[in-house]
Nucleic acid binder design. Structure first.
Lengths: 106, 106
DNA sequence: ACTTTATATGAAATATAATTCATATGAATA
DNA sequence: TATTCATATGAATTATATTTCATATAAAGT
């Protein structure tokens, strides 16, 4: 790790350390969606989705595109795919019991 | 992303969303160290390092080895290297201004 | 056995982040 | 231009995480 990357890493991972944002990313991996569509898919309030999308946009984990009054968001495949692959690999190799490191719930 | 990975991702990234833990990982990338050595290197209290190392150990981001009364910790290179590479790549490509996504401090 | 050194733990205090609710902005349409 | 639909924002509340301080455990050395 290059020196001085710690603050960027912190922002980066803090962004991802939230179940709503992760669920949103998961949805957007399938297909681009609007805020309202995401809210419906995740069973959450519109304002909550909007609040949570904001940091994802700011750090370019997702990209937004205006379509009239809708805002359609798509995932940054390059980064997010790599991250999820890394998590899957880690879970497979280093969390043998699957839920071992999840005691106490998510 | 496989379905149902969200809770694991959450734990995974929450673990990394802390400057003390990131700084500890950064140190351990150079060489394995004991708790006291880390505390000295990072200018932090021993108990704080110990508290922060715990979740890293539980999720196997680092591995511990007893050497007498010292506990020497080494980093899980496979996972942590991949993560830091991903952050570097993302920062290079998607944070062109360097600190753009850091306004407001770390 | 006593003292020192290394580490871990518990619990209170503090700091940070997430959620909710009310409301604002802005684009489309009647 | 009034109304509806889509999204964003502010601020208060609530929830979570971090830090600190005191203390416990445990290995080594005297």
């Amino acid at each position: 790790m290059k020196k001085g990357l710690t603050p960027i890493c912190h922002r980066f991972f803090t962004n991802l350390s939230n179940p709503t944002r992760l669920a949103a990313l998961e949805q957007l991996m399938n297909k681009p969606m609007s805020v309202t569509e995401l809210a419906k898919a995740l069973g959450q309030e519109q304002s909550m989705i909007s609040h949570n999308l904001k940091p994802l946009i700011e750090c370019n984990f997702i990209f937004g595109q205006k379509q009239g009054k809708r805002h359609v968001y798509s995932v940054n495949q390059e980064t997010v795919n790599m991250l999820f692959k890394t998590v899957e690999n880690h879970a497979a190799k280093f969390c043998p019991s699957g839920g071992k490191c999840l005691k106490g719930g998510n």
